[in-house]
Amino acid sequence: GAYRMKIYDRDELRGQMSELTDDCISVQDRFHLTEIHSLNVLEGSWILYEMPNYRGRQYLLRPGEYRRFLDWGAPNAKVGSLRRVMD
């Protein structure tokens, strides 16, 4: 299947937008971000990790809009890595 997600540095799907279609071992290295404040999962399911290298707390992201970090259940906006959930 296809995988696509848009990430934003501000809440409510605002601010600088970056797009992912594959795994990202370090959000900071690739996008120069340490925080993601909202996101829109367009295709596929993903796991968001608090730390790089797929470590730390993890949150399942199904397709849909997440307008603030509380929407995916996190206590803050800190994001380290993102990985696709393969079928």
Rank of each mutant, 00 (worst) to 15 (best):
M17E: 09
L20Q: 14
E12T: 08
Q58K: 06
L42W: 10
R14C: 13
M51L: 11
Y49Q: 00
A2K: 13
Q58C: 10
V79A: 07
T34W: 04
N53T: 03
L13W: 09
L70S: 13
H37S: 11
T34V: 04
G15M: 08
F69Q: 13
G64D: 05
Q28F: 08
S38L: 00
R30G: 11
D11L: 13
L82D: 02
N53V: 02
L82F: 09
G64A: 03
Y59N: 02
Y59M: 14
I36M: 13
Q58H: 14
G56M: 00
L60G: 04
D71V: 05
R84L: 05
L20M: 10
G15A: 10
S81H: 00
G64V: 03
R84T: 04
L70V: 13
T21K: 04
W46I: 02
D29S: 14
V79T: 06
V41F: 11
R30C: 14
F69A: 12
T21M: 07
L13R: 14
L48A: 08
G80W: 01
N40E: 09
I7N: 01
P52N: 05
E19F: 05
F69E: 12
E43A: 03
T34N: 14
K6D: 06
Y54D: 02
L60T: 06
R83A: 07
D29R: 07
R4K: 14
A2Y: 15
A74G: 14
W46V: 01
S38P: 02
H37G: 07
N40W: 06
G15L: 03
E50K: 02
F31E: 15
L48F: 08
S26G: 13
P63W: 02
M51I: 03
F31W: 14
D29E: 11
L13C: 05
L61W: 02
L33W: 08
L20E: 13
G80L: 02
E19C: 07
L70T: 14
F69S: 10
I7R: 02
R57M: 04
G73N: 04
D71N: 06
N40G: 11
V41G: 01
L20R: 01
L13V: 14
A2M: 13
Y59S: 03
Y54S: 03
G64K: 04
L33R: 08
Y8A: 06
S38E: 01
A77S: 08
Y8K: 01
Q16H: 06
M86E: 11
A77Q: 14
L82I: 13
G1I: 14
G80E: 01
G56V: 00
I7C: 09
A77L: 13
C24K: 00
M17V: 06
N40K: 13
I25Y: 11
E19R: 06
D22M: 13
R67Y: 04
R14D: 10
H37R: 06
R4Q: 13
D23E: 12
D9A: 06
C24P: 02
F31T: 12
K6Q: 09
R57Q: 11
R10N: 11
L20G: 03
M5W: 02
Y59G: 02
T34H: 06
A74R: 02
R4W: 10
E65S: 05
L82N: 01
Q28P: 11
D9L: 13
G64Q: 04
E43L: 05
R30N: 07
H32R: 09
E43Q: 06
S81N: 00
G1H: 04
I7F: 15
R10Y: 14
L13T: 15
L48W: 05
S45R: 08
D22R: 05
Y59T: 04
R62N: 11
G64H: 03
I36A: 08
W72I: 01
Y3N: 14
L33A: 09
W46C: 01
M86C: 08
L39R: 00
K78S: 06
D22N: 07
V27D: 01
G1Y: 15
K78Y: 07
I47Y: 09
L82G: 01
R4I: 12
L42E: 10
Q16K: 12
E50I: 01
E43V: 04
F31C: 12
L82S: 02
R84I: 03
Y54M: 08
L13M: 13
P63A: 06
R84W: 03
R4S: 08
Y54I: 09
G56Q: 00
S18A: 07
E12W: 06
Y66L: 02
D11Q: 09
L48R: 01
D87G: 10
A77C: 04
E50P: 02
R4E: 15
L61T: 03
K6R: 11
V85H: 05
G80I: 01
N76P: 02
Q58F: 07
R67Q: 09
L60V: 13
P52F: 03
S81F: 00
S18E: 08
D87H: 08
T21L: 08
S81R: 00
D9C: 12
Y49M: 01
S38C: 09
R14F: 13
S26N: 06
S81D: 00
D71S: 05
R14P: 03
L48V: 09
E19W: 12
R55F: 14
Y66K: 08
W46N: 01
R14G: 05
P75I: 04
R55H: 11
S18H: 12
P75D: 04
R57Y: 09
V27S: 15
V41E: 02
D87P: 15
Y66I: 05
L60W: 04
F69I: 15
L82H: 01
